[in-house]
Nucleic acid binder design. Structure first.
Length: 542
RNA sequence: GCCCACGUAGCUCAGUGGAUAGAGCAUCGGUUUCCUAAACCGCAGGUCGCAGGUUCGAUUCCUGCCGUGGGUACCA
């Protein structure tokens, strides 16, 4: 629809020069009585032309050469909107379009040939994924799906660090629990990992090695076992959510390949770093940031900034056109340093899109459940999936704008009742499947021959909604706002349920019934395609 | 203190500078001889945190204030 309007406006620009001076956009009016699409072009020109916007609108309309088979009416309304109402004939074409494109309906090739990398989850293997990681995992995977839907070739990457202090503490935590299981009295420090899973890992070591490691003080073995166990657990959780990473990038490889040294040397050679108090500092103030920051500690160990910068240089070297990083808001302070460093090294940081999602608050029985990996009192993502299933988990994490705090009501989610919006969507899909089973039994078949019989408001509104699917997906993808897809699908499902109530199929005249089946099938396809992008099942029966 | 988000109906939240600010849940009422009532329809519910500013027009953009969360480490 927008495509057609852009076309006739381009024609009009030849006659009305002033149309070139503004950006003409079309939006969907809130009130359906205002037509299918509308533009505020005339209002934007009031100042420039010093004329009444309604007069300008009149002039624009007089210069629009439109086909009356496509546009039913073009009218001026309110302060100077131009409203466009499309014909039934044009609207119903969407049904044949869906039928033609099937599982590709909604997708586009706008970014075909471009390569993108989406880095997400990136939790270090120190414990099971928590509900907090869940939001990151689901949002990241869905964004990757959306980028693929608009043509990108997308790689999903998980970045992690299995060296450093965190992991030493992990190894030591396991060792102490191991000694405990062997009957020794140990003093287990509060800052160590308190979770039950540490004891499970220690028990496994006891089972396999008995007390042979009792005298071993080096934590390497304990650390390695813990890392493997935990990583297997993380991977299985991701798998349950249907998340498949292309690669797991280990920070350690940056040291092995000399990337860290390389970057450090450049900073040093170009006078961008200096030593103070035994540490190496990066002159971030010279790059426009607030404070200089340490990149190598006095212990000789780099802070996360240096490997992060080195890591990102590999993303550039790997030739990506778009580099998406998804972090929780607790990382919001780290990326400006990394970007500044990369910019200094000469990389085009406009290719990097840093996305920050806000925290998840878990509510249970009206109370906030506090989460911390180190302390024991967290809800794991796995437990959550056990309770409500992968579909509900994915949908709950995606249905809100990532910039808003997410209130996850555990008691409600556990209910698995009809209060849950994901069932509403799935039910619409299942209901159509059921209709198709029933109508087939009646000898009715989908037909594209008489789509002009679809003239009631419920039918027209459904066709309008379907017509917007592609634009909605493109907008959601380009703006990294996956929750819009969920919102759109809920609206589509709602319109379908209304159609179901208003327009019967079995019992209607044959041509009408078969045209309605065609509409229902198109809706089902759109819902299925949308749910697929969200990673949610589209069941045929519920 | 400073930096980044957020603040919309009782609750959870949509809302692409536009027209009468919407949905779900919760409350109350209605709809089934008929393709799944996991649905549909209706009632009620709002100083869009507060105060300024820009604009023909601001929930939307800017500034200040208040509130919530996060950050401000030689933790990540």
């Amino acid at each position: 629809m927008k495509h057609y309007l852009s076309k006739i406006f381009d024609e009009a620009k030849k006659k009305l020069e002033y149309l070139n001076e503004i950006e003409i956009s079309f939006s969907i009016p809130n009130n359906p009585e205002h037509g299918d699409l509308s533009t505020n072009a005339a209002m934007l020109l009031t100042r420039k032309l010093k004329k009444n916007p309604r007069e300008i609108a009149r002039e624009i309309i007089d210069n629009l050469a439109f086909d009356s088979d496509i546009l039913e009416s073009v009218s001026i309304a309110g302060p100077g909107f131009i409203n466009f109402k499309f014909t039934q004939k044009f609207l119903s074409k969407i049904i044949t379009e869906v039928n033609r494109e099937k599982e590709n309906f909604g997708r586009s090739d706008k970014y075909k040939g471009k390569k993108a990398i989406v880095e997400f989850v990136s939790a270090n293997p120190t414990g099971p994924l928590t509900v907090g990681h869940g939001r990151n995992a689901v949002v990241g995977d869905t964004i990757a799906n959306l980028l693929e839907a608009i043509g990108y070739d997308v790689d999903r990457e998980y970045y992690f660090n299995n060296a450093g202090r965190q992991m030493r503490v992990l190894g030591e935590s396991v060792r102490l629990r191991y000694l405990e299981l062997l009957g020794e009295t140990v003093d287990f420090p509060e800052e160590y990992y308190q979770g039950e899973y540490i004891i499970d890992i220690a028990r496994k070591i006891v089972d396999e090695k008995g007390d042979s490691l009792k005298k071993v003080e080096d934590v390497t073995y304990f650390k390695d076992v813990a890392e493997n166990e935990i990583f297997e657990d993380i991977k299985s959780t991701l798998k349950r959510l249907k998340i498949k990473m292309k690669s797991f990038f280990n920070e350690f490889s940056l040291y092995e390949e000399g990337k860290i040294e390389e970057v450090l040397k450049i900073f040093k050679d170009k006078g961008m770093s200096y030593e103070k108090d035994g540490a190496v500092w990066l002159k971030l103030t010279e790059l426009g940031n607030e404070n200089d920051k340490v990149i190598v500690k006095s212990t000789g160990e780099p802070t996360y900034r240096l490997p992060d910068i080195a890591y990102h240089t590999t993303k550039f070297e790997r030739g990506y056109d778009l580099i998406v990083d998804l972090f929780g808001s607790d990382h919001s302070a780290t990326y400006p340093d990394v970007l500044a460093g990369l910019k200094f090294l000469g990389y085009d940081t406009s290719k990097i899109k840093v996305l920050i999602h806000q925290f998840v608050t878990i509510m249970e029985n009206g109370e906030v459940v506090k989460m911390s990996t180190r302390k024991a009192n967290f809800v794991t993502l796995d437990e959550l999936i056990d309770e409500v299933g992968s579909d509900v988990v994915r949908y709950f994490f995606i249905m809100r704008n990532m910039s808003s705090h997410l209130n996850f009501d555990l008691s409600l989610a556990k209910k698995q009742s009809d209060e849950n919006p994901v069932f509403y969507l799935q039910y619409a899909h299942a209901r159509i499947a059921s209709i198709l089973r029933m109508t087939a039994g009646e000898g009715l078949e989908r037909s594209m021959e008489n789509l002009d019989l679809l003239t009631t408001d419920s039918e027209l509104n459904l066709m309008r909604k379907l017509s917007h699917f592609k634009d909605e997906l493109l907008y959601a993808s380009e703006n990294y706002e996956p929750h819009r897809v969920a919102n759109y699908l809920e609206e589509l499902a709602s319109l379908f349920h209304k159609f179901y109530t208003d327009c019967r199929i079995i019992g209607s005249e044959k041509n009408l019934a078969e045209a309605r089946i065609a509409l229902a099938v198109a809706v089902q396809q759109a819902i299925r395609n949308g749910l697929k992008l969200l990673g949610v099942e589209a069941p045929d029966k519920m």
